[in-house]
Amino acid sequence: MLAVVNLQIHYGGISAVKGISFAVEQNEIVCLIGANGAGKTSTLKALARMIPSRGEIHYGGERIEALPSHELIGRGLALVPEGRGIFARLTVAENLAMGAYHRRDKAGIAGDLERIYGLLPRLRERAAQVAGTLSGGEQQMLAIGRALMGWPKLLLLDEPSMGLAPLMVEKVFEVIRAVAAEGMTILLVEQNARLALEVCSRGYVMESGLITLADSSAALLADPRVRSAYLGE
């Protein structure tokens, strides 16, 4: 579903991503793990065409690196950004409606809204509440729900556990597992390496803008380099 070839990202004279290549198959959950500053978030932003990059990005058999970001959601690619990026002054229901802005199938949108409320019942309880007044965990759920309202084929998740209490992290990852079980393809960026590898089938390790390891999640969890650097062992 996704193939990235020699992706390079620069901020002025700084090279943030230095020519990485990786792939995500349909119905897979794949993670990018690594320390702060490794280039993980920049990679997702480049895939969503939010920042310029060099190299090739193949999505669904088509090259998309020349497409504007707003066209990608209609093609089935959605990003849940780091920091959530909700519309703080809109209600929960209005935020969810924004996730379906490109759709015209009213019956389908209504059905998907019920689907999201079933998956994330807290959002139904808070539907009329202004999103900026939600807790951090509720905002993260809302950001995921908003992306799912477009019902993407490929979901990019950037640091969904960041800043959340352990119980809320568990709930967010329950949602990720449930969505994956429905067949959605997911590329997950996550600093909590153990959590990411436990939910994903494969993983890539990024260090200083490069992919330094790539293997099955089980193999990475057992790798002494990963255990020492990212699992605190």
Rank of each mutant, 00 (worst) to 15 (best):
G99M: 01
D223S: 13
E28I: 09
A3H: 13
T185A: 07
R84Q: 10
L148C: 14
S201P: 05
E71P: 07
Y204H: 13
S201V: 08
E25W: 02
E25T: 05
G13D: 13
I109C: 05
L197N: 02
I64W: 00
V80I: 07
R54L: 07
G150H: 10
A147K: 09
A196L: 01
N36M: 12
Y204P: 07
R63G: 04
V24Y: 08
A222M: 03
L134A: 07
G145T: 07
E82P: 05
L134M: 11
Q191R: 08
I211C: 00
L77K: 05
G203H: 11
F22L: 08
R63C: 12
L44A: 02
E62T: 15
T212N: 03
I51D: 01
A222N: 15
R75W: 01
S135W: 00
E125T: 15
P52E: 07
R103Y: 11
I211D: 00
A110R: 15
Y117A: 09
E182L: 04
L220V: 05
E25M: 11
V92W: 10
I86D: 07
S228P: 02
S135Y: 02
P152S: 04
P68R: 10
V17P: 02
A16D: 10
E174H: 10
V30E: 03
S15E: 15
K106F: 11
L67M: 13
E62G: 02
R75Y: 02
E233N: 04
I86T: 11
S208T: 14
Y117M: 06
K171H: 12
L96C: 14
A178I: 13
G111Y: 02
L187K: 04
G13E: 13
R194H: 14
A180H: 15
I33L: 13
G55S: 09
Y230G: 12
V17M: 04
F22Q: 02
A23P: 06
M141C: 04
I186M: 12
H102P: 05
A181H: 10
D105V: 05
V172P: 07
E233Q: 14
G137P: 06
L213D: 12
G150W: 03
M141W: 03
V17T: 02
R63N: 14
E65P: 06
P160F: 03
G209F: 00
L167M: 12
S53Y: 06
R225S: 14
P52L: 04
G137S: 02
E28T: 11
G19P: 04
E125S: 09
L154H: 03
M50D: 08
V92T: 12
R225V: 14
M50I: 15
E190Y: 12
T185K: 09
G118Q: 14
V17E: 01
S161V: 09
I211N: 00
G136I: 08
L96M: 14
I144Q: 09
M141A: 08
I64C: 04
R49N: 12
Q26L: 08
A78T: 13
S135D: 03
S69Q: 09
G108H: 06
I64N: 08
P121Q: 11
V24C: 08
G150K: 01
C31F: 03
I144C: 01
A219N: 11
G55K: 06
S21I: 00
T133I: 07
L44V: 03
R54C: 10
K45D: 14
A219I: 03
L32I: 06
G76I: 08
G83N: 11
A38C: 06
R202E: 04
